[in-house]
Each structure stands twice: as C-alpha cells, then as structure tokens.
Nucleic acid binder design. Sequence first.
DNA 1: TATCCACAGGAAATCAGGGTGT
DNA 2: ACACCCTGATTTCCTGTGGATA
Length: 417
Amino acid sequence: MDGPKIFKNREALDPSFIPDELPHRDAEIEQIAGLTACALKGDVPPNFLCYGMTGTGKTATIRYVSQKLAQYCDSNPPWWIYINCNVVSTPYRVLAHIYNTISGKEKIPPTGLPKDIIFKKLLGLLDLYIKTNVCFLVLDEIDILIEKKGGNEILYDLTRLNENLDVCRANVIGISNKLKFKEFLDPRVKSSLGQEELVFHPYNANELSDILEKRAKVAFQEGVINEGVIKLCAGLAAKEHGDSRKALQLLRKAGEHSERNQRAFISESDVNKAQQDIEKDHVVEYILGMPLQSQLTLTAIYLMRKFSKENIITSGDIYEIHLELANKLTNTKLLTKRRISDYINELALAGIITANTRSLGHYGRTKIITLDIDISLIEKVLSQVKHISMADLLNYKPLLLQTDKVKIKNNVFKKLL
DNA sequence: TATCCACAGGAAATCAGGGTGT
DNA sequence: ACACCCTGATTTCCTGTGGATA
C-alpha cells in the first residue's frame, strides 16, 4: 500500500483487453473487414476460419473489427456472439449459449433438453430478435469442439442455419490455433466453413516490442518502464513462437514483482524473475486443478522418485502404487490400468513428466517415465492439496518398493537401456 | 526366426449425476 | 412418477507392437 505506484491501468495488460489500435495486424484487419463488412449492406458474408498460434492476435483482431464495424452503422449493427469452445465445450452448451446470449436471459437450462428442441427454439429466436440483420457466431478454439463427439454435427447445423431462417442471416467464424485441425473436419463442414481462411503469423521480437510499448503506456505510470525491459520481454516471448499473450504476461508479472519490492521502476531482473514465476505458477495451478485421481498418479511418481532415486519408472509400477494409494484413502475408486495410462499421458502433455514408450523385448512394452520438474516443487504443491490424507501419503513408502522385486527388474532394464 | 511379454491406446459401452417436459 | 436428455469419467473389450530371448 505504501510503496510507489507502478500501475496506472493494469487491465491494459490483460489478454482480453482490446487496445485502440492493433499494431502489425493491418493486413488481417483489412481482410476480416473485407469479409464481414458486406453485412452492413444486408448481404450474407462468407463463413471463414482463422488460424494462428496462441497470442497471435486472432481473437483481438476479430473483436477489433467488430467494434469498428459497429461504429460505421447507426442502426442495426450486426450481432457478434463469442463462444470459447474451451469453456462452452459441448454441442448442447454451444446452442444454449447462443440462445441465452441473444435472449439475454438464462432461458435454456444447462442440461436436460434434447438438442433438436433447442435448435428449433434458436431458429425462432434468431428470426424474432435479429431482424433483417446478420449474426456472427465466433467459435474460438473451435478445434476443441471438433474433437468431441457430435462436434462436427453441431458445426454442420450452424453452417446450415441460414437454410432454415427466414429473415436473419447467421454466419460462422472459426478460430483455431491448430493448423492441422481441418483434417478432423467433416467434408461437408469443411466446404462451407473453409470458404475463406486467413493465417495469423507469429509476431517477431520487434513487432512484440511495438505492442508492448503501446500497452505499457496505458498500463504503467510515467517513468516506470524503460526500453530495455520491453525489449527483454519481447525477446523472451518471441522465442516462444511470438506469443503476445506471453509477452504481456511477462510485463505484468515483472510489474507486480517490482511493486512487491516497493521499487518505483521495473528492472530487467524483474522480468527474469517473472519468467521463472510464470513457469512455476503454471505448474502449481495445473496440479492443484487436477482431479484427485490424477494427483494420486503424480504422487505415485513422486514416491517412486523419492524412495528409489535410481530406479527406472514404468507405467506398470505407477499403476500398482496408485492402486495402493487409492486403497489407503476412503471414498476413492480403484481405477483400471487403462485409465492410469491416460492420466500419465495427461501429465506428460502438461510438461510435468516425460513418458516415452519403449519396448524392452521380452520384458514387454511400457512407458518410461521421468520427472521434468524439480522434485521439491512437486512435494510442495502436493502438500497443498486439500485432502486429509495427502500429507500421510507423501511420506508413505509403497509396498512395491519394500521388496527387491523392483530392484531386480531395474537391473535388467538398465542393461537394456 | 518365431515367440511372447506387458503394456499402448482406439472405440464403444456403461455409470452416475445433473436435468427436462408431461 | 415416468420416460427421456446431456455430460464427464471410467470400464470393457479389443487389436497392435518393438525387440530380447529361446
């Protein structure tokens, strides 16, 4: 409270913040405007797709264009409905979300109704509310929707909305950060959704600097930040596929760090500290957010490392230890090998462990697991897990490790590897 | 060279928990 | 009360497989 004031407007560093101008996205803005502006004349714009890695400004650009478009028409601006498929993650909920957004009330319950009923209701609503106008449905992270069952169907339905509408025109815009997601698209959807495509290229370090500079002016007090700090943030983020979100996050964290230390300006060491923090925060948050069973899987790996530093960890071992741990807890189901296998994959995907499938000849095929994160951090995080018995588990030596069964196996494996 | 281990991982089925309208 | 809906987590069933060993 007493320290010097660093931030002027912290929100400007938020990923959802839409600045007054978007540097280095002129071409994209023009393209999107070109595709959508005909809505103002009452024409039907084409559906289209936007590709690009995280933090390349896809969502921001579309939001930006939608704002500008609204400025250019005095009556009946087009509707823009944003749907983040990561949050609104099932076909049912997509429909419900669209309906509820338009009606402005929670008319559709979160579950219970058949999909086709909602679809019919939605058609009626669109014609009723959005008279002689266009409704843009922006599906962010559309790839997540596709991977689920029924994802293709719902997209098909959405792209066909117009055939069932009398007055209103609906239009689908898909945003994806996976370039290859089109492979999973149903051919019928592909042809109607992929009428136009635009690719957002990653920002380079200089472009990121420009972006940060503009935002920093809004976000920080005078004299808090210098060019070196911005360059450093931009450089670090440029290494990570030019992710502007990462760059902004770095800047914000660095600001918070210097604020905590009651300094009136941000130094480059604040940025470096921020870089470390971000990685750590990510892991901590992820682990604490996992379901208990997944946490148990991680605990199993942790214990294996803790009590036998030398041993090679295989998926079979983890399964057995997981079983043991789950048995010690009440109200915990015993899972199958199949499920544990998936949990291990998820941990690997999150970058917490590495799991390489190896064949050990007569000793079968298995995953060789290594911990990618400092074991002390794992211990610290797991001890924060809100479960009465978790603390006990962290000091429990699994039966499996009390025999020399593992040791014998381990010796054989070591020779093979 | 055939065998066979100990799983990997896809697909479909099942279950439980949260709902609906009639 | 009843028939039926949607979802997410998990199980069941299954086929596939790299390479040391007999």
